[in-house]
């Protein structure tokens, strides 16, 4: 039985595509057969994040319109066994497919024996969003600790419920630990309290996401990347394992500073 998970957020630029690529790749690294669908028709990007942009021949719209077979359009990621990308069309727009067609497409992917279908949803709440969620039985809402992003996430969660997607979890992305420590950024419990959905994971704001995206290699595959570890934990939770949330601690102060800190904390245990 395959699972169809849509990665969505409402607001753009919070990390949907990065999250889709990392979760999909992470599941493949755990031996699952995975298709990641780029549902952002007209603004295709997932292929670039995954480093597969030079391998695209056909796209999702061409499969739906019957110009090619599904198998011809699926781009196999040679680095990770079992990982496939179904790219978006770049020269079409979101209105050229319907939710019904999306459901049909996902059903034919399911019948190929894949374990997971991850759908990278476009920003916004219009047709592209409706297409992307049509076939999903689970949703992952990505947000950052900013007012605009959380507000949009709240709207999206309500819309997912209205569309009878009841299994929705939260990924809080781009946490800047030192800012949270100074209480200059909302923390997970602030966001959790407001959105009232279960947390799937927290991702620190990490340079390795930038460098890995530059290279087209998802961070989840990089052993010493902190964000990569956060994504590996998320993958484990998707697979039903109990993994504690990544403990995000601010970088240790320099020896000189820690000496000063020591003066204040001495005797307090």
């Amino acid at each position: 039985m395959s699972e169809v998970i849509v990665v969505t957020s409402g607001k753009g630029g919070v990390g949907k595509t990065t999250t889709s690529a990392n979760i999909g790749t992470g599941l493949a690294l755990r031996g699952k057969r995975v298709v990641i669908i780029d549902a952002d028709i007209g603004l295709r990007n997932l292929d670039v994040v995954m480093g597969l942009e030079n391998r695209i021949i056909y796209d999702l719209v061409q499969v739906i319109e019957g110009q090619c077979r599904l198998k011809q359009a699926l781009v196999r990621d040679k680095r990770y066994e079992g990982l496939y990308l179904l790219p978006a069309a770049q020269t079409r727009d979101k209105d050229c497919i319907t939710p019904e067609q999306m459901k049909k497409l996902c059903n034919s992917i399911k019948s190929e024996g894949f374990d997971y279908i991850i759908i990278d949803c476009p920003a916004g709440i219009e047709q592209g969003f409706k297409n992307a969620i049509a076939a999903a039985n689970k949703a992952i809402v990505v947000t950052t600790p900013e007012i605009a992003a959380v507000r949009d996430a709240d709207r999206i969660i309500a819309m997912l419920e209205a569309n009878e997607i009841m299994d929705t979890t939260l990924v809080l992305n781009r946490i800047r630990v030192s800012m949270v420590a100074r209480n200059e950024m909302m923390n997970l419990s602030d966001v959790e309290e407001i959105l009232a959905v279960e947390t799937l994971g927290v991702i620190p704001d990490d340079d390795s996401i930038v460098t890995s995206t530059n290279k087209g290699e998802p961070a989840v595959a990089i052993e010493n990347s902190l964000a990569g570890k956060a994504y590996r934990n998320i993958v484990s939770r998707i697979l039903g394992e109990q993994v504690p949330l990544l403990e995000l601690v601010p970088p240790a102060p320099t020896p000189f500073l820690s000496r000063i800190f020591g003066w204040f904390t001495k005797g307090k245990g």
Binding site: P145, E146, I147, V150, R151, D154, R155, A158, M179, V180, R182, N183, E184, M185, M186, N187, D190, I194
Partner: peptide, 20 residues
């Protein structure tokens, strides 16, 4: 007041108005 708290309170009020 730390800006993290300000953000949280503004957001709570905003979401409340959105929901209602």
């Amino acid at each position: 007041e730390n800006s993290g708290n300000i953000a949280r309170d503004r957001l709570k009020y905003l979401i409340l108005k959105d929901r209602v």
